[in-house]
């Protein structure tokens, strides 16, 4: 049988254990986005253009290949990096360049960036370059948006329509 001192001590310790779990499990609340702020996410998975042009093989070259590998053109695998610039209200906000994935650098380039902005109206400019040696940007978008507090605006590239889109 426990003494009254042991019973009080045990009750105190179990209560402290319960309080530690109960409080640590719920409190304090975590605010990862301040009130009145919104998010702009640059989220693109895009294949850059191949670094070289495809070359048509001559009949002699084709004849030297095994029958199952006689593709009429030979294309270099490596692709160009993808560069994206985002301006918010005319000021540079994101400048990112991503290398193609894969050991042979023939996969898609992945860009994922997050930017906090004040909720409200903004002018957003997005430019993307996916071709090596290109001076300017092959794709661009300039538009006005109005963001509600906590709203997430995703900047993406639609591979079907070949356009930068906001979702």
């Amino acid at each position: 049988m426990y003494s009254w001192r042991a019973l009080i001590g045990q009750t105190l310790l179990y209560a402290a254990f319960a309080a530690a779990i109960g409080i640590g499990s719920w409190w304090p609340p975590y605010q990862h986005l301040a009130p009145g702020r919104a998010l702009v996410k640059l989220s693109m998975v895009h294949h850059g253009e191949r670094l070289g042009e495809c070359v048509a093989l001559t009949p002699e070259e084709l004849a030297q290949l095994p029958p199952n590998m006689r593709a009429p053109t030979r294309c270099p695998r490596e692709r160009a990096p993808v560069t994206v610039e985002v301006d918010i209200d005319g000021a540079p906000a994101i400048r990112r360049s991503a290398q193609p994935s894969g050991l042979a650098r023939d996969g898609a380039a992945v860009l994922h960036e997050r930017l906090e902005v004040a909720a409200g109206a903004h002018r957003i400019g997005v430019r993307m370059r996916d071709r090596a040696g290109e001076e300017g940007f092959g794709y661009s978008l300039d538009t006005d948006v109005t963001l509600a507090p906590a709203e997430i605006l995703v900047v993406d590239f639609d591979a079907e329509t070949r356009r930068i889109v906001l979702r």
Partner: peptide, 18 residues
């Protein structure tokens, strides 16, 4: 479409995430 505003947070299990 919107960033989660969290009312409560389990600090024992999620303390690495912040």
């Amino acid at each position: 479409g919107s960033a989660p505003l969290i009312a409560s947070f389990d600090w024992w299990l999620l303390h690495l995430l912040p």
